[in-house]
């Protein structure tokens, strides 16, 4: 049940593009044609599915405060979480390189159509964002991290597929010249994001427990509260250390 909830939540409610604006650069640059956007979307799903669980392991066993306890009691006090940016991005860059090699080997056609965009996945905010949100939302288990990676990848895929289809159609409409291309894409994305906000009600209708778990889209305030909570936790930890 947890898995299903997180899966749909990460696709619709916390959609990468519409709720948090991650991966906008490639979303805008590659959405001119449906065919290329499908390839890009598939690559993002794959890379997210691999990197989020990998980074979850890194976070649990190396980076978090006290995570090094498995090495022995004298390591229990270390807190390496300030290194998480650099560790996450290194994992991601390596994985992307690997994906590039695999795709080149097994599907040259896909490799040719994606062209320069595969290396760009390394700097796609959606990928790093997935790992950072996984960390800040404190996803409790490895299985859930996999679900979160797949779910947010599919969310991104859906978003780029939808906008690519709309952009193919809109070519035949009379858009004001100054809005053509980038401008109208921004505004359509905004309207789609407003539409996606209605999914926010999906999880709030249930029992109280589910209500607490479904913050995000509709109320940024709530998100801030959540961040405050984790930030307070950090602050407490820091206090403990200074005493």
């Amino acid at each position: 049940m947890e898995h299903i909830e997180l899966f749909f939540k990460s696709i619709f409610i916390d959609n990468m593009v519409f709720a948090t604006f991650l991966g906008m650069c490639s979303y805008l640059a590659i959405s001119k044609k449906v065919s290329t956007s499908v390839g890009m979307g598939a690559a993002v799903i794959f890379v997210l599915t691999v990197t989020v669980p990998l980074n979850w392991l890194l976070d649990q066993y190396i980076l978090q405060e006290g995570a090094l306890a498995w090495l022995g009691p004298e390591f229990a006090e270390y807190d390496l979480s300030f290194l998480s940016f650099i560790m996450f991005i290194a994992t991601i860059a390596t994985m992307v390189q690997l994906v590039e090699i695999i795709v080149e080997k097994f599907s040259p056609a896909l490799y040719n159509s994606l062209g320069i965009f595969l290396p760009l996945i390394a700097v796609n905010c959606a990928i790093l964002g997935g790992s950072l949100f996984m960390q800040s939302r404190e996803i409790p288990s490895f299985g859930l991290a996999v679900t979160y990676g797949v779910g947010s990848g599919i969310g991104w895929f859906l978003a780029i597929l939808a906008i690519a289809a709309i952009r193919e159609k809109i070519r035949y409409s009379a858009v004001p010249p100054a809005l053509r291309g980038l401008g109208i894409t921004f505004i359509i994305t905004g309207l789609m994001a407003i539409g996606f906000m209605s999914f926010g009600g999906m999880l709030t209708g249930g029992d109280e427990g589910a209500k607490e778990k479904a913050p995000a889209v509709e109320a940024q305030v709530e998100k801030e509260n959540k961040d405050e909570k984790s930030a307070e936790k950090i602050a407490e930890n820091q206090n403990i250390k200074t005493y």
């Binding site: 519409f18 948090t20 604006f21 401008g183 921004f186 309207l191 940024q220």
Partner: peptide, 14 residues
Amino acid sequence: LSPMALIVVGIIIW
């Protein structure tokens, strides 16, 4: 709400 940021940028581009 976050979607309005997109629309404001769209208008700036316009």
